[in-house]
Design a protein around this nucleic acid. Structure first.
Length: 296
DNA sequence: AAGGGAGCCTGGCGGC
DNA sequence: TGCCGCCAGGCTCCCT
């Protein structure tokens, strides 16, 4: 499921229910997901108030009082959902979905917010996700965060920065962009989409969009811009839902309808005036979708 | 030393 | 209908 726009959508969906809430209890259905939960995870977290929900790259951060943060990663199939009030009074459709998925409900947060009970449930069939703890004051030295590149939101991501990263690198643009040290939060979908918008072939060497003096080419200017735009549009659309519900209320994101190439093998290239057909290739074991005609 | 591939898991889908 | 192999939005480790 989750690249940056999907995690940001989850954060926005959870925030109204979680920020300011008191954690009464945490129930773990098993001792591990991708990694074991930290020792005494439930006991350490219980009794604290949630100060804020934030995000770094594809990580959701639950900032608690007392210099403690839950670092949550959704892996490939993780999702959160909210359950307000009595468990018995949930609507039929919701109940149906819940019972179907219950085998993969791994964590339940029992919260109280504004004197009302709220349950926040983490579900993850493939269990590639995880939850860890860090002192809030030491988050920057968390191993996965130490080397992260800039966020593609706002104006932090510049062509000059990418030129510096790409200079001298033979690695294909696709893999260079999937590397979280280049840009934080990009995944397979949005890398394919950004490269198409910038009309750059995913197989092209990263160094080929940098001039001999280390400056960005015009194509790289475009790429830096297109990455920011595609991420902003996807967040606006509530992310992309392929086979999973991603929003905390069970509704779907709709950016998947705006994919230009991702999962569109064999379809006509959407670039105006281009007569190409979207092609699928495999790079580093991952599917890449692109137009061999207009992406050079 | 950079880059490719395997592995971690389960579920859904297409093909036979 | 049933079974089988393939594929999936991420990340880390190991090998060359």
């Amino acid at each position: 499921m989750p690249e940056l726009p999907e995690v940001e959508t989850v954060r926005r969906g959870l925030a109204p229910f979680m920020e300011g809430a008191l954690i009464h209890e945490v129930k773990l259905a098993r001792g591990d997901l991708r990694f074991p939960f930290p020792p005494d995870f439930a006991r350490t977290v219980a009794g604290r108030q949630i100060v804020a929900l934030s995000r770094r790259a594809k990580y959701l951060l639950v900032n608690l009082e007392g210099d403690l943060t839950i670092i949550s990663h959704l892996g490939m199939s993780g999702s959160f959902r909210i359950d307000e009030g009595d468990a018995d009074s949930t609507p039929g459709e919701f109940h149906h979905r819940r019972s179907k998925d219950a085998a993969h409900d791994h964590v339940t947060f029992l919260l109280e917010r504004a004197s009302r009970p709220v349950r926040v449930i983490y579900n993850d069939p493939r269990r590639f996700g995880f939850m860890l703890l860090s002192k809030t004051s030491e988050l920057d030295s968390f191993p996965a965060f130490a080397a992260l590149g800039p966020e593609p939101t706002g104006n932090l991501l510049s062509a000059a920065y990418l030129a510096e990263r790409f200079r001298g690198r033979k690695q294909p643009l696709k893999s260079a962009l999937l590397d979280q040290r280049t840009v934080a939060g990009l995944g397979n979908i949005y890398v394919c989409e950004a490269l198409h918008r910038a009309r750059l072939a995913p197989t092209r060497a990263a160094a080929s969009v940098v001039t001999p003096t280390g400056r960005p080419t015009r194509a790289l200017d475009s790429l830096a811009h297109d990455i920011r735009v595609v991420i902003a549009e996807a967040i606006e659309a509530g992310g992309s839902s392929l086979r999973d519900h991603i929003r905390t209320d069970g509704s779907l994101g709709y950016f998947q309808h705006r994919f230009r190439v991702y999962d569109r093998e064999g379809e006509p290239c959407p670039t105006e005036g281009c007569r190409g057909i979207v092609k699928r290739i495999v790079q580093s074991g991952r599917s890449t979708f692109f137009c061999p005609v207009c992406q050079k």
